[in-house]
Simulated assay, not measured.
Amino acid sequence: MRRKQTAHDPLTPGQKKFLDFLGAYRERHGYAPSQREIASALGLSSVGTVQRYKQKLVEIGAIESTGTARGLRNLMPLAETNVEALLLPLVGKVAAGLPIEAVEQQELVEVPSSLIRKRGEHFVLTVEGESMIEDGILPGDKVIIRRQAVAQNGDTVVALINNEATIKRYQKGDHGVELHPANSAFSVLHVPDNSDFRIEGVLVAVLRTYY
């Protein structure tokens, strides 16, 4: 007879993906996804499969359900769920060079949970350009960003300048905000006082795929 899964047992890969998507969706939207949205994101064939995952995760205390359409909430801290990977939203591209227009995408990327050391909303961007290569950020890399509106001098940030996204080292001094490249072939970007400037987040980690 097969032993019943308990809260002390590792999650199955499907359960991990379910929890990761639920957590990422709630952070981004402020409420839980619908069962159809979960099925679509995880590639499940039916809402019935989602219901079976939900029932099992409720039984082991990983989530709670209020019984409403969007009434799911994570209960177990990450360390207790034995989750080795998280699903984070890939929200577009960012220029390591001149700013490029911010374009949002609808996709999820699996990242090691060990890279997410602080609470808060995180997202992923794909790097274009070579202005940060001396910091080990190369074209095609994916960068994990923790969303926050402030930064310390020296932080590598993703910033929007007149709705164009760029990744650079942040520096604020007597002459205003400067965005510094990590490539001697590129110039410092001085942010005009009258520009629409905001920090979207701070670099957490870099992901690279080798082919």
Rank of each mutant, 00 (worst) to 15 (best):
L90F: 10
I145H: 01
R119C: 04
A79G: 07
S113G: 09
E80W: 11
V83C: 14
G140W: 11
N82K: 15
P99L: 04
L108K: 05
T166G: 01
V91K: 07
A85Q: 14
G48L: 01
G61P: 06
N163R: 14
V109R: 09
L90S: 05
G173M: 04
Q106S: 11
N162T: 04
S114E: 11
L57T: 06
E128C: 09
V127P: 02
P139F: 07
A151W: 13
T81N: 13
R169Q: 12
A159F: 09
N163I: 04
G154W: 15
A79C: 10
K142M: 13
G120A: 04
M76G: 00
N74C: 15
D141H: 12
P77F: 01
Q51S: 13
V124R: 00
L42T: 10
T156M: 05
V109E: 02
S113V: 11
A69V: 09
E84G: 11
K118P: 01
I167V: 15
A95E: 04
V143H: 02
V109L: 05
L78G: 09
L88G: 01
A95I: 04
R147H: 11
K54N: 07
P77R: 08
K172T: 14
E164R: 15
Q152S: 10
A39Y: 00
N163W: 03
H122R: 03
V124I: 14
I116Q: 08
L72F: 10
I144K: 01
A79S: 14
G61M: 11
L57C: 03
P77H: 03
T156E: 05
P99N: 02
L138K: 07
N162F: 05
S131K: 12
F123Q: 00
A96S: 05
G92P: 04
L44K: 06
Y53E: 05
N162M: 07
E130F: 12
V94K: 02
P89H: 14
L87W: 13
T49P: 00
E134H: 10
Q152F: 10
F123L: 04
R147L: 09
I38H: 00
G120I: 10
K168L: 06
L78T: 07
K93M: 08
P99D: 01
E104N: 11
Y170V: 00
A165D: 02
D135R: 13
P77M: 07
V127C: 06
E134W: 11
I63R: 06
V127N: 03
A39I: 13
Q152P: 00
A95C: 04
G43W: 01
R73H: 07
A102H: 12
E164D: 07
V91F: 03
A69G: 03
A149H: 13
S40L: 13
I137C: 06
L72V: 05
I145D: 00
G129I: 04
G97F: 10
T49G: 03
V83G: 08
E84C: 09
G173K: 08
G136S: 06
I137T: 06
I144Q: 02
I167A: 06
R146T: 13
G48E: 10
I144Y: 00
P139G: 02
G48H: 02
P112N: 10
Y170A: 00
K54G: 11
